[in-house]
Every structure is written in C-alpha cells, then in structure tokens.
Design a protein around this nucleic acid. Structure first.
Lengths: 349, 349
DNA sequence: CCTTAAATTGCAATCGATTGCATAAAATTT
DNA sequence: AAATTTTATGCAATCGATTGCAATTTAAGG
C-alpha cells in the first residue's frame, strides 16, 4: 500500500524519476510524448505522474524553451457583446492548445495601447492579437515585436502592414449592402455617421456607402457625411446637426449601433418619424439594436469566429504548422439584418 | 563611443555584471532596490540596464521565487458594461503593482468555471478573483487553491466561506430602496423577477424586496415572485405570466436590466402602459436601461471600484501588506437611479 | 556467432534570477 | 591602534524542465 503525501511540496519530474528508477530526462521526454521513449515507459510515467499529482512547472519549462505559451490580447474595450464573443473564441482555441491569454483594454487611446504593448513585451508573450484603439495612427509601439519576429495579428480594426496579418469582415461590401438597402427603401439623401477614418472599419464603411450611391446613380453630398467619435453623445450631436439640415435627409446609416441608437432616439423626440421620415441603419448587431424602438437594422458579424480564427492562425504560426507571413488578410462573412428602423415597405422584405 | 547591439540576444544580469565588473548577485539586488546595495552602484546598474535594453526574465525570476506575479480572473461573462469596468479597475491596480491578469469567462456554467479554475491552478496564479457562474452550487473546484493557501477573493457574486473574502454591494438595502420607491409611487402588487437563489446577489435582492414589503405593511404574495434565469427570453416569459395574473400587478422589480427591459417591452406590446399600469425597475444600470422607452429605473454600482478593491486587497495580501483572512466582506456603495419607468408622480421626485 | 543498425535511456549542461552565507571594506567605538 | 560594527559585495547553490550527445540495450542482417 502506498501513501501519497498531500503536503505542500510540488511534485517534480525528479520525484517521478526516483519512484520509477529512471532518469528525469526520460520522464521529461515521456511527458512530452517524445517518440524516442518506449511506450511502456511512457505509460508508467503518465500513470505515476497522475498518481502523484504532478503538474508541470511552466516557468522552468518556459525558461528553458525560451517561450511563454502566452498570447497577449489588446482590445479597445471589453464591454460589447462583440468583443466578449471574440475573447470567448480566442479562449476556446488557446486553452485547447495549452496557451494562456493575457487580456488588456486600451480604452480607445493610443497611449494606453502603447503602454499595454510594452507590458506584454516585457511579459514576453509569444504573440499578440490586437484590435486598434480609436486614435492610433501608427504602430511604432509594436515595432519591438516585429523586430524580434514576435507575430502580431490584427483583427477587426487592423493596420495595413506587410509584416502583420489582419482578420476582418468585408466592411466595404457590408456597408454597400446597408446603403443599397436604404436606397431600396426609397432613401435618396442618406446621412452617414462615421468614425475616425484612420480606422479601416470606418474608412471602409464610408467607401461602401459611397460605392452604393454610385451604383444607384446618386450624387455624393459631402455635407451628409458626419465624422464623429461614434459615442452615444456623438449620436445626439449628429441628430442636432441633422435637424438643421434643409431639406432633411431621409436616411441615416451610422457606423455603429450605439451612436445610431442615440441619434435615432434624439430625432424621434424631435418629432421625426422613423422610418417614415428618416430610415435608420447601424452596424454591429449590438443588443441595444433590439431594444430601441423601432428595432434597428444593422450588420451582424461573427465575433466568436473572428476570435477563433485569429487565435488559431497565431498558434499555428507559433507551432510552425503554418506561416502567417504568407497570409495578409483573412475575410469573414457578415450579414445584413433588416429590422423596422429601415422598413418603409414591409411587404418588400 | 559605444555601439549597442540591436541583435536578437536578450540581455541578462550577467551581461550587465560583466560590463560593470561586478557580480550578477549585486546586479540582481540593485535592480530590485535591495537596501544592501550602494546608491552609486544602483545608479550605475540602472543606467547600464537601460542603455543595454535589459528586460527581466520573468520565468527565471518566477522559477526561483516560486511565484508568478499573475492573478487569475474568472467571470461569468465579459459582455457587460459592469464587467468591463471591473476588469479595467483590476487591470489598473495590477499593472501598477507589476502583476499580470489572466482572464477567463465561465459563460455562466459551473463546469467551465471548474475547468478554468483548473487551468489557472496549473498556471500557478498567485491568487484568484472570481465572480461565480449562474449555477455554481459549491466551490469544490477552488479547494486546490485553498488547500495550498492560494487566496481566492470573490466579488459581486460571492460565496460565503470562512477562507474567502467577498466584495459586494449591499444588495438587500439596494433592493429594499428600489421596492420602497415603487411602493412610494403607489404600487401595491409588485412582481419580483429573480434569478438563481443560490447566488447571493439574487437571494439578497429578494430579501430586500421582502423587507420593504414588511416595512410598508404589505403582505407577501409568493405568486408574485418569479424565479428565472434572468435572460432576455426569461423576461418575455415573465411578461406572459404577468399577463395571466388577475388582478394584474402594478409594479415589476427585476433583478437585472436585460430581463427587465425585455419584460417591459413585451408588456408594452400587449398594451400595458408603463409606468401608469405597471411601474418598472431593474438592476445594474446597463446601457439598455437608457434606451428602452420609458427609460428604466435601476441601481447603479461601481464596477471599476469593485475591480480595484478586489485586486488591491489580493495584492496587499500577496505582498504581505495586509491579510485578507481577517476580512470577510467588503461592502461598496450603490445608488438608486430613478427614471421614467417608475415615475407615476413626476412632481414627487 | 559477429557486425551493424535501430531503439532507448542517461549524463550533464543550460535557461536567468535569487538569496543564504561568507567575506571584504569602510566606519565607529573603545 | 585594536576591536567591533556597519555597509557592500561576491560565491555558489537553487528553482525544474529541456536537449545535444554519448552510451547502452535490443533487434536485424549476414
């Protein structure tokens, strides 16, 4: 009969080796499923490890291997349905592959993004997954990574750089569809509320908006394009500007839902009928889009999948299974979701 | 003139020691601001470290020190304003103290919570910050931590355990205030939509509801208490049940905003006037509470502060500055926010 | 039965920082 | 000036896993 101590001492491969009368080297190789270890020996090692409650010491391993099995994630904010799905997707893939995630928020500022990047660099993450802050206008703060060959993958809010892969949806096409839909509902003067045009997502959505106008032979009126920070407050301000317009526009397409909703509500309070006077569309399929009255037409895109793809590509690269340097951009599907805020002719759905 | 290599080799304390002609031991102590190192020597060490682009190797340090400077965080979901504020607060404190955060979502299931806890255990986090999943009914999955003396601090959704500190708001009092407010608005038959009563937050809010009834000499009608999972769908179902009630209730107090909002909207669609027929209140001050019409009365509570307090207490404990085993519960303030959904007599605010 | 190849296992150095103990140097006290 | 403190620094072991190379054992081939 064997008594296994439940004391505080951690079990190491040396302990296992001693019990089994073999060398620590073999134990190490056995636990890592090295081909040069006899199958029987492996079995013994595994069962003894289990019996003794062994857990690998990541630090010793990291120190020796010179890698951390840790992935850094920097996002603008966590407080959206989209972002939490992204993280969930990353977590799923990372956990399966034995990686940990270190997550931080830039709170939409380039400065904190840089600080966070530095922290992650010092923590020696094996790779970085980044969605850029609102006002980031260069990626110098990732130079340290690139110089060292540490992979940086952008998702959603990407930066075009030959050394960095980006994972996105086709924002141009999605915005083009939204705008075309509004036009199909009879809109002719459509306001577009956009964000910082440094960010691909907003620049592309603006492009899509313009292309759709062109497609339908509508003239582009620069006064109808409002560049804002897309906050709730910005939506209110946009509404005030819209109310000053003469003639009033007959459609609004905002680059995110939060802003669309506050704008919509402000206009509604001012007596504008939605969608009869002004039809509305947003972007992101945020939960509020289903609460506002009328419910908001929007674009849904796959957060969880985006997270999974980003993490999987990074991990494959780290494991040498695939090389992301060959991949510049990965595009995921998105979907237009039509709701009452844009439906002037319900029979035409 | 000195040429500093920008090559790929990491600088170690040995490199610094060699350049300065002192021992690595002194460099190590110098970098850690050890009192036994001469001030001048320290200066030299720091400036040389900077010049050479030294960054400490956490793994070597962790391996030797037997701690990770990493804190594990397990939350039900990240996708709420509240939770992302909590995380931001934790991050702020942790970064300042040189700790990293490993964050994971239980997605409201006890099973994933247990898996995550195991992963964190294997990653040897120095401590754990946890807000419990919806259906967790014991904390056996944290036993490993407690056995080893690794501190576990709960926040918001806590578990009463002598070895674990909890950080909460006074849910009883807050719910009591909400209910009293509804009563003050003339409500006499108030439905309370609650969640899993295993969770302190919901059990306490129910208590507060009951106490307020008692305070105002109102009888408790068990039929008015609906135990749900507080999801959006649950709100719709609750509304359907409410519509079956005879007589109709004249108030609804839901234990979270998401559920309150969907219930409110469903009732509204059924022709019920809010707040005239039924006054409404929720909990959490989620952004949707400001979007729904009428705006929802709710309880605001300080996410960022809760995160900061949780992290600070954990870190103080780890650093030996304070011992959380002496502290059982920390209570933060919360605030009733009155909006139109419960205001029958606007002049009485 | 001997030689060669293949399959296993072990030796020992290594990753980089930390720290108890010893030592050396400087300051202070008798 | 000698003895005692105080202040700084170094030595060397340690944390636990990994891995190139060597050694041993076993299997295969002649």
């Amino acid at each position: 009969m064997q008594i296994i101590s439940t004391g505080n001492k951690e079990i190491t491969i040396y302990d296992i080796a001693r019990k089994l009368n073999i060398s620590p080297a073999t134990v190490s190789r056995g636990l890592n499923d090295h081909p040069a270890v006899n199958k029987e020996t492996k079995k013994k090692i595994f069962s003894m490890a289990k019996e003794m409650g062994y857990r690998s010491n990541t630090f010793a391993s990291n120190l020796r291997r010179q890698r951390t099995n840790t992935i850094g994630v920097i996002v603008p904010r966590l407080n959206s349905n989209f972002m939490s799905s992204v993280i969930a997707g990353m977590e799923k893939v990372a956990n399966q592959a034995g990686y940990n995630l270190i997550i931080s928020q830039s709170l939409e500022t380039a400065k904190k993004e840089a600080t966070n990047a530095q922290t992650m660099f010092n923590s020696r993450v094996d790779g970085l997954l980044v969605s850029l802050a609102y006002d980031t206008d260069n990626i110098d703060h990732f130079k340290d990574f690139l110089k060292k060959g540490i992979p940086v993958i952008f998702f959603d809010r990407v930066f075009n750089h030959k050394q960095c892969t980006g994972i996105v949806i086709d924002n141009i096409k999605a915005a083009q569809e939204v705008t075309a839909h509004l036009i199909g509902q009879g809109c002719r003067r459509i306001v577009h509320i956009t964000g910082n045009l440094k960010r691909n997502v907003y620049a592309d959505r603006l492009k899509g908006y313009k292309y759709a106008l062109t497609d339908h032979n509508l003239a582009l009126d620069p006064n109808l394009i409002l560049e804002t920070n897309l906050s709730v407050e910005a939506g209110v301000e946009a509404a005030e500007k819209i109310l000053q317009m003469n003639p009033l526009p007959d459609g609004v397409f905002a680059a995110n839902d939060a802003c669309a909703v506050s704008c919509l509500q402000t206009l509604k309070q001012a007596g504008i009928a939605i969608p009869q006077d002004i039809a509305f569309a947003g972007f992101n399929n945020d939960p509020v889009s289903k609460v506002v009255e009328p419910n908001l037409t929007t674009v849904d895109y796959p957060g969880s999948e985006m997270g999974e793809v980003a993490a999987q590509n990074l991990i494959n690269h780290l494991n040498g299974t695939a090389n992301i340097n060959n991949t510049n951009t990965i595009i995921l599907r998105s979907e237009l979701i039509i709701r009452e805020s844009s439906l002037r002719h319900p029979e035409h759905i």
